[in-house]
Amino acid sequence: MNFDPMKIPWSLLGLFIVFCIGMFIRGFVPKITARVGKRIGIRIYQPWFDYVKNFSIQTSITHGYMFYLGPVFRLTGGIGMVLFMPLIHGSWYFSNFAFAGDMVLFLYLMFFGTLGMALGAGESGHPYSAIGVARGLAQVTVAEIPLVLAMLAVAAQHHTLSISQIVAAQQGGIAHWTMVTNPVATATGMLALLGSMMNSPFNVVLAPQEIPIGPPTEYHGTFLGILTTNRSIFPMAKIIFFMNIFFGGATNWAILILKGWLIYMWPVIVGVVFPRFRVDQSIRWFLKVPLLLGILAVALV
């Protein structure tokens, strides 16, 4: 498959839609958690206001060129993930650049932004950013285990690593979804998702209470604007990925939004129910049930 310049505007459109969905969810979810906690919570459109505010702030400081580049890396990673993800099944317009890569690309591109961000924050010299990164990395090494196993199981099941082809293989009703055809892999994958969505019990990485400052504080204004852009895109990319490989993908935007929202709610719900783990606890947890499930998943293929 060759590169077609017309892909560019369509991909940008898809990206924008994903961004909007992300912005919406980022307003909606805090609202829900607040309500669960018997609080009123923010307005749903609050993220948009914040967004505008961030880009309007006049003062800006930098600690060095890596500090400057950190957010760029971050956002590039997030956007890249969306750009290589087929959003809508069967649609040439919203299949983006999925032909240039597969699940493996997606998996490793995830780290592109993380790494850049970590480095940028690192240059600020703030110890807490380094602590946060250390925690995140430690946790992700084990959270990836079930994810990788689930992916391998699915890829082996469908005889392909290509996300588009996996989606294609699941068409024709819910009975063809991986969720049904390979429930163990799906369960494994969903447990892995918990580890990367920065919700309780796995959010000690950010630890909003204990570490009230850190990257988002050192990064302010425009930098923060770039980062919040990413926070709307990056989780959505992940969610869409899960949707594509486990839940049959989406044939139109409505389904995408619905499924995306449902998947997004899974870690949120778990997060409000369960208390937070320390990093070493979460590592041990991932090495128990999710690991066993994952091994079962590949063993069953």
Partner: peptide, 27 residues
């Protein structure tokens, strides 16, 4: 099982990086 096209990946990521970087510089 899978495919990859390194120049395209490089181009997509590179241009995204450039665009975001320019945006940030500008803002």
């Amino acid at each position: 099982y899978g495919t990859f096209n390194m120049p395209i990946i490089m181009a997509v990521i590179g241009s995204t990086f450039a665009v975001v970087f320019l945006w940030l510089l500008l803002a």
